[in-house]
Nucleic acid binder design. Structure first.
Length: 851
RNA sequence: GCGAGAGUGGCGGAACUGGCAGACGCGCGAGACUUAGGAUCUCGUGGGCAACCGUGGGGGUUCAAGUCCCCCCUCUCGCACCA
């Protein structure tokens, strides 16, 4: 145990500011005294300040991580000094593919690499001086944690929000697993960039679509970046329109279509079904059978990527069948075409080529009629899709009982929708782009599903809550399969010859044997006792990060996911900082789970994260994205070796606005080091003792003003996360104080407090040198006197015709008359004796003579 | 194509509701202290000899525009046949 008296004496140094010694000393102090622990039963106001917890990769922290972590650390330290009870925790999102792929390659168990990586991350974080409450640390891979992840899954299952379905999935042969839509970028896996194929598969799916409306609506409740709100809205993709029934000609049945433009119903000239639509077989005539089946086969062979290729010609086939337009009784030919997707809306559309670009292109290609029902465009040349311009025409029933003619499209839409509903020909309808969330992965390193498949019960049976956690069994066989396809330039190839990319691998858990030699998956049904099989898929990495912010509130609770009283005290997260790459994935999934937990009474808030900020990407010195191959990766450990943690922290914040993408500059870190050394010399002499320049005398009024202006600027900037300008103000203060021969304690001490959240090690040491007791982090934040933030003299720019011609200096209380009189003297040569047409004086700002 | 954000010195970036463009830092230049300086300190530093010109380009509103309005260009991010 370190004796605390050690921290009362300044570290002796012969050569000025020694960041190594100072940082080691104060990190040891914090380790012993734990000033950053959050207390649950506090009467203080709370502040929950959260970082997106990292996946502990093998390469350690990078400077991009540090940007966000430093920002939340400054806010946390600042809020503590402002009297808040701050919860600032850290943990590990440690399930996932990289550790498992490493295990496949090396045979080293993912648990081992994960533990090593966590140790590295934690060491680096402590070295940066991040003020986490380490008592609350956990990893998503801890059985005590994933027990509750499994528990939430059971709740989802109970409520019918987790179900097994045979759905077309994104199968990645190289990774040997299915992927969520959100994990695919441009037809390739987000991780590794491997090709993904579409195939039907029996899978666990979470019914996120049941929450689509609330996920959209509640975006109003949060303070998030506009771009992120926009991305979530787009991803949810709500569109409001109508469903309309078209009766088939000469047979029973109707085609139901979804349209956002019911106002163009009278302009429909044909119908299109998705090639997979079940009615295709019904409507296809004998004569068209061959053409239809040829087209369907061709579509089935196409990958999603091919099918979605842009600028390609629209293709399709006529089925021979017809449907009736409910508003005018017209017979419309029914086509199939792959531009209509089975997965959206009803998988069928009414085609209005005059007012829809896709229909227009298709009609052109197959020479189908184009009928204009909204004037205002040139439908021979292009589809006219505007809803705010143009007038509806040719849109009345034959008997004249109903008409939308003469209306603007945006007016016609609600009118015809209402009429369709009354006539029982259609209904108002809302559609979402959002699809249900494919939740299973055929992997080892993830949370096992607390589910048993029982042949007797003939359905998935949940484990009881008391059986949790269902611990991930031990194995040495992590491979997705014996033969994993390798992706080459010419497509997939197996390691043992040709391979079927459509082959489904058994998940590794299916092969795991217990010590007695039996298979892990062999078990008995919790419901009927019959022999049954465990689910062998595992949950995706997103599962653990969906609710971790709740566990930090009550990390050791063995009875509940979180204690309700503690949850009510700490939630919501007040500030959440992390990368924008999670704008849809993690942030949408977490919001979904949170709403489910809200519905079952586990949480008290509708939304988990009140304020969200994305730190910008840190580029290499060459202005390029940091990457190993470019060799421009900046290593935080090396930077800290050279310049110290405080300098790295300060520089991270000084680079530019938190949200902006900006390049690293080692020269810039040097500049920051010079600033810290100047701060040091402000109050410490050559021998490392308190400088004789530091005096107890009352500071001059000018210096007091500078201090109060600095307190004001730093305070306000920290509140809105503008750390770069806060630091620049501290530099201004330091530069001014450096010039002064006498530096009053009354100035220096508050300044050290301002510096403390930014450069905590240096601030602790300076505080000690000033003879004060630690910890500086527990001192109250300085308060500024507004009266002292304004100067008593002010400089007024004098303009003639808006051009700066002179400046005058006057008392703060100077009257307009005085300012004008003094100004006229200054700019006499510009006025040349003439009387100005107009004189504009902006109080305490500027005076402008118009001649 | 659609949506969001952004274009300011040699560089990173400041500039509250329209009111001194370029704070602060880097770099650069000069000087001081020095045996020495890649340490430190001081001063200077948008362009132009100047009148003047300068916030991506072009119009406009205004006494006054980086900031407001219209048109255009470039870059970044996201979505992408979503009916």
């Amino acid at each position: 145990m370190l004796e605390s008296s050690r921290f009362l004496k300044p570290t002796f140094m012969s050569k000025g500011y020694d960041h190594h010694a100072i940082e080691a000393k104060w990190q040891a102090y914090w380790e012993v005294h734990r000033p950053f622990r959050a207390v649950d039963d506090s009467s203080k106001p709370k502040f929950y300040c959260l970082d997106m917890f990292p996946y502990p990769s093998g390469s350690g922290l990078h400077v991009g991580h540090l940007e966000g972590y430093t920002a939340t650390d400054i806010v946390s330290r600042y809020k503590r000094m402002r009297g808040f009870n701050v919860l600032h925790p850290m943990g590990w999102d440690a399930f996932g593919l990289p550790a498992e792929q490493y295990a496949v390659k090396t045979g080293i168990h993912p648990a081992i690499t994960t533990a090593q990586n966590i140790a590295t991350f934690k060491r680096q974080m402590k070295r940066v001086g991040l003020s986490y409450d380490w008592d609350r640390e956990f990893s998503t891979t801890d059985p005590d944690y994933y027990r509750w992840t499994q528990w939430i899954f059971l709740k989802l299952f109970e409520r019918g929000l987790a179900y097994v379905a045979e759905v077309p999935v994104n199968w990645c042969p190289a990774l040997g697993t299915v992927l969520a839509n959100e994990e695919i970028v441009d037809g390739k896996s987000e991780l590794g960039g491997f090709d993904v194929v579409r195939k039907p598969m029996r899978q666990w799916v979470l019914k996120i679509t049941a929450y689509a409306d609330r996920l959209l609506e509640d975006l109003k409740l949060v303070e998030w970046p506009a771009s992120t709100l926009e991305m979530q809205k787009n991803w949810i993709g709500q569109s409001i329109g109508a469903e309309v029934e078209f009766a088939l000609v000469n047979q029973k049945g109707t085609i139901r279509v979804f349209t956002t433009r019911p106002d163009t119903l009278f302009g429909a000239t044909y119908m299109v079904l998705a090639p997979e639509h079940p009615l295709v077989d019904v409507v296809t005539t004998i004569g068209q059978k061959t053409a239809v089946s040829v087209y369907r086969d061709a579509t089935a062979r196409k990958s999603d990527l091919q099918r979605q290729e842009l600028e390609k010609e629209k293709t399709g086939a006529f089925t021979g069948g017809y449907a009736v337009n409910p508003v005018n009784g017209e017979r419309l030919p029914i086509w199939i075409a792959d531009y209509v997707l089975m997965s959206y809306g009803t998988g069928a559309i009414m085609a209005v080529p005059a007012h829809d670009e896709r229909d227009w292109a298709f009609a052109r290609h197959y020479q189908l009629p184009i009928r204009e029902v909204i004037t205002g465009g040139k439908v021979d040349e292009a589809a006219f899709t505007d809803t705010e311009r143009g007038t509806v025409v040719n849109s009345a029933t034959a008997d004249g009982a109903f008409s939308i003619n003469g209306l603007k499209p945006s007016e016609a839409i609600p009118k015809i929708t209402e009429w369709l509903a009354k006539q029982r020909k259609g209904t108002k309808a809302v559609n979402y782009k959002l699809r249900d969330w494919l939740f299973a992965r055929q992997r080892y390193w993830g949370e096992p599903f607390p589910i048993v498949h029982c042949p007797e019960c003939d359905k998935p049976v949940p484990l009881s809550e008391s059986a949790l956690p269902l611990v991930l069994p031990e194995t040495k066989d992590f491979k997705p399969d014996i033969d994993v396809p390798q992706q080459t330039d010419s497509g997939y190839r197996g390691t043992t010859g040709t391979i079927d990319v459509m082959k489904v691998f058994e998940a590794p858990l299916a092969r795991v044997r217990k010590t007695d030699g039996s298979l892990w998956r062999e078990t008995s049904c919790p419901k009927c006792g019959a022999s049954a099989e465990r689910e062998t898929n595992t949950m995706p990495q997103w599962a653990g990060s969906c609710w971790y912010y709740l566990r930090f509130i009550d990390p050791k609770n063995s009875k509940q996911l979180v204690d309700p009283a503690k949850e009510r005290y700490w939630m919501p997260v007040d500030l959440y900082i992390g990368g924008s790459e999670h704008a849809v994935l993690h942030l949408l999934y977490a919001r979904f789970w949170h709403k489910v937990l809200f519905d079952i009474g586990v949480v008290s808030t509708a939304e988990p994260f009140r304020k969200l900020v994305h730190q910008g990407i840190v580029l290499g010195e060459d202005n390029q994205k940091m990457s190993k191959s470019r060799g421009n990766v900046v290593n935080p450990d090396e930077m800290m070796d050279q310049f110290g943690a405080d300098a790295v922290r300060l520089y991270e914040m000084f680079m530019g606005p938190l949200e902006a993408m900006k390049p690293w500059s080692t020269r810039g870190v040097e500049g920051i080091t010079r600033f810290l050394e100047r701060v040091w010399r402000l109050m410490v002499n050559e021998e490392g003792r308190l400088s004789s320049a530091v005096v107890s005398a009352t500071p001059s009024l000018d210096h007091q003003r500078l201090l109060h202006q600095t307190i004001k600027k730093v305070t306000e900037d920290v509140e809105v996360h503008r750390f770069n300008t806060a630091i620049s103000q501290m530099m201004v203060f330091t530069n001014e104080m450096t010039k002064a021969e006498q530096r009053a304690r009354a100035l220096i001490e508050p300044f050290v407090l301002l510096l403390a959240p930014f450069a905590p090690h240096l601030a602790e040491e300076l505080w000690a040198i000033l003879g004060r007791r630690p910890s500086v982090s527990q001192q109250p934040w300085p308060i500024f006197d507004p009266a002292l933030t304004v100067s008593e003299r002010m400089t007024i720019p004098v303009q003639v015709n808006g051009k700066l011609r002179s400046k005058i200096e006057v008392e703060h209380e100077a009257t307009r008359d005085l300012v004008e009189r003094l100004s006229r003297e200054q700019i006499a040569e510009w006025l040349q004796g003439k009387e100005p047409k107009k004189v504009i004086y902006v109080e305490k700002k500027l005076i402008n003579f118009v001649v």
